[in-house]
Computed example of a mutant assay.
Amino acid sequence: MPVGDVPGWRQIFKDDFTSDVPLGQFPAAQPWKWSAYDEGWRDTSRNGTYSPARVVSVKNSIMDLYVRTEQNVHLVAAPLPRIYGPGTQGGLIYGRYAVRFRADPTPGFKMAWLLWPDSEKWTDGEIDFPEGELTGEIEAFLHHKGAPTTQEAFKSGSGFNEWHTAVIEWTPTEVRFLLDGKLLGVVTDRNIIPDHPMHWVLQTETALDGRRPASQAKGHIQIDWITAYSLEIPSNF
């Protein structure tokens, strides 16, 4: 896990998962560091049910999200790192977000790890990376500020089953997406780049194709480490 500031960025959150958390105790075991979408909430497709206590655990320095179906309920989770930014939900205005992860190719499930507006207004924009169905490829998206149904999209050609490091760099002048140290895409139009506080959500859910996952579909999404940085903004911005 990267430790310390990097040029232009101040590290303000990190977790190398050195403390085990068994199933049933997340996020209550570390409430100062993690929260999650509430138990029982429905996910974006309405086919999945958020259940962090039954899905999320930490062992051997890995956070594990075990998505599956139990008694016809498709269990998913959306952990939220507590970053304590200036926004009403602790979000930052601009930031750098890095995570090392992999996932089993589990049909019917996807991830959309995203920056979501503290205002809860989609018109403030949205930034998603990594996103994609777990059987597909990793993609990145920026939903335009002011017109979020319009988006910039970037494909990686890489699947989820290998270990990857994904980085979002969000500044007033650009949003950069990097996968394994290589630039996947960049957005430079300041008119569409979000400029309100946004918080980080590791939203892991059922696929959006309208079909429910098969009852036997199950798999693990693993996170090796995660870290976030605030932007040190030069005076000329």
Rank of each mutant, 00 (worst) to 15 (best):
S19H: 15
F26E: 01
W32E: 15
T227E: 14
F141D: 09
P148S: 04
F17Y: 03
P105W: 05
T165S: 13
K14N: 11
N72S: 15
V76T: 02
A77W: 03
D128V: 05
G210F: 01
S51Q: 05
L75M: 10
L23M: 09
S35Q: 03
S61A: 13
Y229R: 13
Y97I: 14
L183M: 04
P107H: 07
P52Y: 00
F160R: 06
I138Y: 09
K121Y: 08
W170M: 02
I226E: 10
P27K: 00
V167T: 15
L23I: 08
F177S: 07
A166L: 10
G146A: 01
W200E: 07
F17G: 05
D15Q: 06
A228I: 10
K182A: 12
T150Y: 14
W113D: 11
G95V: 11
G95Y: 07
Y66Q: 03
P86K: 08
K145E: 08
Q203N: 15
S61M: 09
I223P: 08
V55I: 04
N191M: 13
V76S: 01
E39T: 13
G136R: 10
K145I: 06
E126L: 11
V99P: 06
K218E: 09
T204N: 15
E70Y: 07
L208H: 13
L65S: 04
L114F: 14
I12K: 12
G87M: 12
F177P: 03
P172T: 01
T206P: 02
T204I: 11
Q71A: 13
